[in-house]
Amino acid sequence: MENKSKLVIIVGSVREGRFGPNVASWVAEQAAVHGGFEVDVVDLAEIEIPLALPAASPKFAGDDYPRPAGMAALTSALEGADAFVVVTPEYNHSYPASLKAAIDWHFTQWTAKPVAFVSYGGAAGGRHAVLHLENVLTELHAVTIRDGLSFPNYFTTWQDGRPLDSEAPGYAKTVLDQLAWWSAALRSARNAAPYPA
């Protein structure tokens, strides 16, 4: 497929012993099978993400926003992306602080780009975390995809780095199809005219 969209899969948890890299790896595999994306996996555990933010907002500071040098790879990946998949656990009915910090250090990098969610957790499968993320990323003018993947009780429903549900790849394809559609549409729109933020 020509003109593939650049998809960044974000591993949101940095907790020791986290399951996120397993989920992200599987999602990257599904995206490769899909064929509509150039895939880059960004693991927040490998990036310097301070919780303390500068006084100025990236919304107003633009390119002069004083990010740490250790965040350059993340900023570059977000800037170059056409679409995102956020892989998140649910901690105390929400998402990790590492993910919130990564989002808050950026602004225009999310604008007019689609975001899909893959969550995992206990009985709710991370859906509480996704509901919070949808609000946050909508505020940053991202377009959140309605369909997503949720893995309840992942500790019993995954084996050898793969979900046991045989229908999971089909669900993933649906999410990736929608993400590819939105990615192409929004990329064309961004190329045609600046987004009126």
Rank of each mutant, 00 (worst) to 15 (best):
Q178G: 08
A101I: 06
A73K: 04
V42Q: 14
E139R: 14
P89N: 08
I49Q: 07
V39H: 04
R187V: 00
A28C: 03
D40M: 14
A28W: 03
W182C: 07
A45N: 10
V175H: 03
V136A: 12
A73E: 11
S150R: 02
S5V: 04
A124H: 11
A189C: 11
S188F: 08
G62W: 10
S76W: 06
L164A: 03
T111K: 14
N135W: 07
A52T: 15
A77E: 10
Q109Y: 06
G36Y: 04
T157Y: 03
V118Y: 03
P163M: 09
L133G: 04
F19S: 02
A168S: 15
G148E: 08
G148V: 00
A189K: 11
A52Q: 15
F60L: 13
Y120F: 15
S98M: 06
Y154A: 06
A112H: 07
V42W: 12
L137S: 02
R162I: 05
P21R: 10
F19T: 09
V27A: 10
I145N: 07
T75M: 08
E48M: 02
Y171R: 15
V14F: 05
E16G: 11
L131Q: 10
A52V: 15
A180T: 00
F37W: 06
L131H: 11
I9E: 05
Q30V: 04
A55F: 13
L51R: 06
W26T: 01
L51I: 00
G126R: 07
